[in-house]
Nucleic acid binder design. Structure first.
Lengths: 145, 145
DNA sequence: GTAACTGTACGAATTATTATTACAGTACTC
DNA sequence: GAGTACTGTAATAATAATTCGTACAGTTAC
């Protein structure tokens, strides 16, 4: 799994943090610590899935288009990183006579697919708002909000 | 996550497939489709955790030292790949004034740690024997066993 | 028309993963 | 005890995945 899921969650939490405001890819990129092109790529997917609205041109950018209390990290994961829990490298060789070697690939595939379902079942419990509350709570001592 | 967990599961299933026999790192490597040194590194960890016994010298190699019906993939995962579910790249910057940027790192860390618990909870349901049965079942048509 | 933005693609840089090689240590066999 | 076949481990090379940077066409506001 690469970090696009993490970036998507971060970006959506940030947009939920500043509702009513458009945020440019440059602003989000600074907050996330990456480059604007990467943010635009990810936000483009999130737009196609209805999580954000975008506006091109002057004063444009991104704004949340969903209820942060409704959208769970599971939906975000499925939009961005579905199927990437399993490592790329594959064990065994389908051409081998030995059953263990020949079929291990398929068996591990099946195991990782089901494991991903358990993984996302956990993510169902967490909403964008949950994440936002957690980050806000993290620095409560020196916060005035 | 790299593929060491997959290789460990494959190797243990193979050893369970040929009980009473010592298997050399070369034999296992061929079955898994990787090189002997990598197998030796992983088997060395499995030995330290009591899953296999090793024997150096002529006629040596690896042999299962546990009940394949008892050992679950969760134990194997914890031995080999614990903490590697989370991607390496980190979002945000602890030095930032913005709470979202400053605390996102810790929040995502927490989420991935808990997600890994759900992931391993699924793996608890699968034993080495489960995997072995699955690979054997995979080619039932042309199998005589 | 110009400035500020998104959408998208491509190649470079970086990092992670895997493969290769080497060699010391151990145990068996002659 | 010399030779052979193993494991244990480390270091380095090769490969692949990920991330970054740049570029530019398209869009919108002024």
């Amino acid at each position: 799994m690469n970090s696009e899921f993490t970036i998507a969650v971060h970006s959506l939490a940030l947009l939920a943090h500043i509702p009513e405001h458009m945020a440019s890819s440059e602003l989000i990129a600074k907050n996330v610590c990456t480059n604007p092109a990467r943010i635009r790529k990810i936000m483009s997917i999130l737009r196609k899935n209805g999580f954000v609205k975008t506006k091109e041109g002057i004063g444009g950018g991104y704004i949340l288009a969903c209820d942060p209390n409704e959208v769970t990290l599971a939906e975000i994961y499925r939009s961005i990183s579905n199927g990437t829990l399993k490592p790329h490298w594959c064990s065994g060789d389908p051409q081998e006579a030995c059953q263990v070697s020949a079929n291990m690939h398929g068996v591990m595939d099946q195991i990782f697919t089901e494991a991903e379902m358990y993984f996302t079942k956990y993510l169902e419990q967490i909403t964008i708002q949950t994440v936002l509350d957690k980050v806000r709570h993290g620095c409560q001592e020196n916060s005035q909000q």
